[in-house]
Computed example of a mutant assay.
Amino acid sequence: MALELAVRRASDDEADAVSRVIVAALRETNARDYAPDIIARVEQSFSPSAMLQFFRKRQVVVAIVGNQVVGTASLDGATVRSVFVDPAFQSRGIGRRLMAEVEEAAWADGVKVLTVPSSVTAEPFYSKLGFRAVRDSFHGDERTIIMERSLR
């Protein structure tokens, strides 16, 4: 069954919902690849108040099914950040739709090469979208794969 999916700019009153989606994805999906202390540390960067700050500094989009926020992604200059989909809605094309929206925004801003600091968990997802690993980055024992892709 196809989802009735809408993707649009996040609004301030969705900060709690966006935070919940990210924390759920971290705890359920990313926890397969990262230790509990890393997940706990990363979670702190995605509180509702932190989300409001991101809404001011980045182009943040949300995926909506019904009236529920089920995914989010953001563009920070030429860098894609915080692409997360609610675990109950993963593997249904929502992440791909979010990325298409972010890529359109980047292209409109004149970005030629898009970068994404990928979790180990999301690397296969970004690879399928044409991103290639450039280098590893470490924040303590948290490994991130820096990936990039030329637009159009």
Rank of each mutant, 00 (worst) to 15 (best):
G93Q: 08
S82P: 02
A24M: 03
D16K: 11
S118N: 05
A88E: 13
L75V: 04
Y126H: 11
R135S: 09
P87G: 05
A17E: 03
A10R: 02
D33P: 07
A15G: 09
S150D: 05
L52Q: 12
S91D: 11
Q59A: 11
V69I: 09
S91F: 12
R97N: 01
V60Q: 12
A88S: 14
A35F: 14
I145R: 09
V102N: 13
R32D: 00
D86T: 05
L52G: 00
G140E: 08
Q90G: 03
E148N: 09
E103D: 12
D141F: 12
E28K: 12
E104M: 06
N30H: 15
K57M: 08
V85Q: 13
R149L: 04
Q59M: 07
V21Q: 12
A73N: 06
S91V: 10
F84P: 13
T79N: 09
R96H: 11
S137D: 03
E43P: 07
A35Y: 14
D109E: 15
G110S: 09
S82M: 15
R32N: 03
R143C: 06
T115Y: 15
Y126R: 03
Q53D: 06
V18M: 12
R56H: 08
I146K: 02
A10P: 04
K112E: 01
H139Y: 05
A63F: 03
Q90P: 09
L151G: 00
Q59R: 12
V102I: 15
R81G: 01
T72K: 07
V83G: 11
M147K: 03
M99G: 01
V69W: 02
K128T: 00
R149Q: 03
L75T: 01
V134G: 02
T72V: 14
E123P: 01
K128S: 08
V116C: 07
A105S: 14
E104C: 04
L5D: 00
D33T: 07
D12Q: 11
R58N: 15
R92F: 02
S150G: 09
V80N: 10
M147T: 00
L75D: 01
R132K: 14
V62C: 10
R135Y: 00
A108F: 02
R8C: 07
I146G: 03
S45Y: 15
R152P: 01
V120H: 07
F131H: 08
T121Q: 11
G93I: 06
A35W: 12
Q68V: 03
V21D: 07
E104S: 13
A31E: 01
T121V: 04
V102M: 15
T72H: 05
F125A: 05
N30I: 00
G77T: 00
V113M: 12
A105Q: 11
W107Y: 10
M147D: 00
E4W: 13
G71M: 04
R58S: 04
E148I: 04
S49T: 03
A78L: 08
V120W: 11
S47W: 14
K57E: 05
V85Y: 13
E4C: 06
F55Y: 14
P87M: 10
L129G: 00
F89I: 05
A31S: 15
L129R: 10
